[in-house]
Write a protein that binds this DNA or RNA. Structure first.
Lengths: 249, 249
DNA sequence: CAGTGGTCTAGACCACGCT
DNA sequence: GCGTGGTCTAGACCACTGA
């Protein structure tokens, strides 16, 4: 039942232990509310030090898989937390996580002079150029959102020249360009749709929309991507799980 | 410049180190982008082991104060990240963080039979009773949101009998009742206001509102509070910072 | 009381970024 | 090669929970 860890693997031991426990939780060997083996017990079984087990458990807690209570033990948390924790996710990933089939239609991809707002958000020079990518996003075949991304042309010109898949910008940035996404600043508001949005989303003029702006940064605070997205309010609610205050543990 | 830590304090060393560094960052001794002293250097200066310093730095990274890069060092992050990181915050705290003067008018606080939706969200019995708290929230004196909270009557009856301050439910739960808030499940949507909302918020009938539902839980998954809030879309945007994927560090 | 997680040490070696 | 953070060990003692 308890599989071993490999010391020769290039994967750190604590990550192997995390995978092990995640798999057992996913497989239902530990259910929500169950108490995991103690740190000492796990360390003995896997022949690693307690501190290594501890690192694995702390990270699992951080990711929302388990909760730890001093003097009691480590308990399997509600599995839905780990899925919904507020993190940088693409539309595609969001839909998949909710069990909805994502779809994408590219309305246009081109190189443009960066408009002032875009320049400001992406910290670009006055003369800088941008890739502008417009997409209509579907959920189970129904239009759900209209989305426009701006990316600095200099770094990402391959998007225009190499015919790359455009159904997940984040996946593209990470896999093709090797960019590490560090954080995103999001703003969400309610407003009425523009005529263009009404046309694409197929909604009437008094149905409000959820409008999101997100600037994504890498770890050195360089802006990578500016996204504006407009969601149909009747088909889309913004769901997140947030954790409690770090100051009072 | 570098103050010492106290071994006799009941505050753990790593927390003292966190406070120390937070204070130095807040005071501007380290600015955004600066490189902090290395782990070894800090350990020597403070006469603690490197693992202790490490724990402090890891937690600071977790909270968004610094970022760490292998082979390079630990860098002070953008201070605004730590403020905006998606966490459980009350309306009051939100406003203060944005430099807006919060205000609160209690429209009513009473004990009611829990309606079905409330019962379902708070996992209550059919006969259970709830405290219903309705408030109008102001920002710089202007109505910004209409908010209704439901709390289980059994645990929190003191709210009705002890004339407690009601301008921050979270603060009340934490300080008076000693509840540890663990997580919140939020749903945000855009819709048109009800006549009652229009009246309280002073808006016209074609101005959309941001509508939020939040269920707050303690660490054992017991629901503590159900909040419904309606925000004026012209005065309120929902802002958060989210961090990148934990799976690819 | 025994058992749990929380803190802490004093080492060790490795992986990575830079020069 | 040097300095950084990343991983890991084998102990220690403390604080908390529950029987």
């Amino acid at each position: 039942m308890m599989i071993c860890v490999s010391r020769s693997s290039y994967v750190p031991l604590y990550r192997q232990i995390m995978e092990l426990l995640k798999n057992q939780i996913s497989a239902g060997e530990f259910k929500g509310g169950d108490c995991l083996p103690s740190e000492e017990e796990l360390a003995k079984r896997l022949s690693v030090s307690r501190m290594t087990v501890r690192q694995a458990l702390l990270r699992l807690e951080h990711e929302g898989w388990v909760r730890r209570e001093q003097g009691r033990g480590t308990f399997v948390g509600n599995p839905k937390i780990s899925r919904n924790l507020a993190r940088l996710t693409s539309f595609r990933e969001d839909m998949i996580a909710r069990g909805i089939e994502p779809g994408c239609k590219v309305l246009g991809v081109e190189c443009v002079q960066a408009p002032p707002t875009v320049r400001e958000r992406l910290k670009l020079e006055r003369t800088a150029q941008c890739i502008k990518l417009s997409r209509l996003r579907f959920g189970d075949g129904i239009p759900m959102a209209l989305q426009t991304n701006y990316l600095p042309f200099d770094r990402f010109r391959d998007i225009l020249t190499h015919n790359l898949p455009l159904d997940s910008v984040y996946a593209l940035l990470e896999t093709y360009f090797g960019v590490k996404l560090y954080r995103g600043d999001q703003t969400i508001e309610a407003r009425l749709p523009t005529p263009e949005e009404r046309r694409y989303l197929g909604i009437s003029k008094d149905m409000p929309v959820l409008s999101m702006e997100r600037v994504t940064y890498q770890s050195d605070d360089t802006p990578i991507d500016l996204a504006w997205a407009t969601y149909r309010s009747d088909r889309f609610k913004w769901q997140t799980t947030v954790l409690g205050r770090p100051s009072s543990p």
